[in-house]
Design a protein around this nucleic acid. Structure first.
Length: 156
DNA sequence: GCCAACGTTGGC
DNA sequence: GCCAACGTTGGC
């Protein structure tokens, strides 16, 4: 068993919130709809058991609100072949799927959500992908140090 | 609603 | 290969 990796995944609570995740069957959902190559590549690097920070973007306030875990490795996102889906990609062929997804399962909500504002005040977190100017990556790596610091700040 | 920053597309 | 145009993200 190799050491687990840490990630952050963004979701707009108006479309899928941490509560939606906790109410999902098995408290699990497939992370479909990612259409960014960098984000896809990060998902391809995920392993079962990896830890995930669940972040509410376009929220008031934007914040890390919970913890999830990766329960499958990456596999083809079926919405890319669904002509009725907004994420349909006519260029992607079933013989060579372009877009992948993983399944993640709810672990817990943070006792205290950590707002973007608070995160910005932490010098330890200066390097977080989330906090970089113009950063829009919806799936991104988190360092073990950042993870530890965030959990401590969140009151465990 | 605004708009800056980013990624992608396509003409040349 | 360049770069303008466009669509999207996401904080404010």
């Amino acid at each position: 068993m190799g050491s687990k990796r840490y990630w952050l995944m963004k979701s707009e609570p108006s479309s899928f919130s941490i509560d939606d995740l906790s109410r999902s069957p098995d408290q699990t959902t497939c992370w479909d709809g990612v259409r960014n190559y960098q984000a896809r590549n990060f998902m391809r690097n995920m392993a079962v058991g990896d830890h995930v920070l669940f972040y509410h973007s376009n929220a008031d306030p934007p914040a890390i609100v919970g913890i999830a875990e990766v329960v499958t490795t990456a596999y083809p996102d079926p919405t890319q072949f669904d002509t009725t889906d907004t994420h349909y990609d006519p260029e992607s062929k079933p013989s060579n799927p372009r877009w992948d997804m993983v399944d993640i399962r709810f672990v817990r909500k943070l006792v205290r959500p950590l707002t973007l504002d608070e995160l910005r005040k932490e010098s330890t977190l200066k390097g977080m992908v989330l906090l970089q100017k113009g950063s829009r990556l919806s799936v991104q790596p988190v360092s073990p140090l950042e993870w530890r610091h965030i959990l401590r700040r969140a009151g465990r």
